[in-house]
Amino acid sequence: MNAVLRLTPQWRFGSRRSLYILERNIMAYKRQWPVFVSGFFEPLFYLLSIGIGLNHLVGDVHVGGTTISYGAFVAPGMLATSAMNGGIIDSIFNVFFKLKVSRVYEPVLATPLDVNDIALGEVWWSLTRGALYATSFIICMVLLGDAGSPWVVLCLPGTVLTSFCFACVGLAACTYLRSWQDFDAVNIVQLPLFLFSATFFPLSLYPSWLASIVVFSPLYQSAALLRGLSLGQFSWVMLIHVSYLFVMGMVGLAIAARRFRRILAP
C-alpha cells in the first residue's frame, strides 16, 4: 500500500511555509540595510555615465522602425543585466555559502519546512530584491530621460520575471559547484552573456551566424522584452520572450529542488 502511495505524482511544489525563508533572509540582512539603499546609486552612475558620453558618441539607434537615443536603447539592456547579476549573486554566491559553508538550511529541515520550501523561499527572496532594484533602476531611467514611454512601468514585472529565471538557474547551478574556485567558471559564463546579448548594440550589427546564437541567450530574451516594454512596442514576439524566461526558470527550479534534496537530505 505504501508503494502505491509513493507513486502518486507530486504536483504541488513547496508550500506557504517557503515564505519563512524570505522572512529569515530579511532578518539576517536587516543589519545590512545600507547595501540595499545604496543599490539605488548603481544604475544612477551607469546611466549617468552613458548619458554624459556615449549618448553623443553613438548618437541615435534604430530599433523596430523608431529612432531612439543610445541611452534609451541601452538602459533596458542594463536593467536586464542587473537583474541577471542580482539573481546570480543571490542564488549562486549566497546560497552556495548557506549550503556548503554556514549550513543554514540544516536546522530548517528539522522543522515542518521541506527542501522544496527552502528552494522556493530563496527564489522569493531573489524576486523581492530584484523588484526593489528594478524599481530604483526604473526611477533612474525616468529621471535621466532614458525611459522610452510611460509603458516603462511594465519593465517592473518584466524584470521580476528575469530575476526569477536567473535565480532559479543560479540555484540549480550552485548545487554543482564544489569550491570557491569554481566561481571563476561562473564569471566565464556571465561575461559573454553580458557583452553579447544585444545589450550594448542592436542584434542587426552582429554577424548573422553570431546573431542566431545570441537569440538563444536568456539575457537577450530579457533585454529584448524589457526594451519592447520600455518603448511601448508590443508584439506577439514578447510572448516568446516571456515563455522562454518562465520555462527556463521552472526547469532550473525543478533541477535545483532535486539537487537540494540530494545535498541536504541524502
Partner: peptide, 11 residues
C-alpha cells in the same frame, strides 16, 4: 567593434 561600429557611423 560592436559599439565602435555605432560610433564610427555617427561620430
Amino acid at each position: 567593434i560592436g559599439v565602435g561600429h555605432l560610433v564610427n557611423a555617427h561620430t
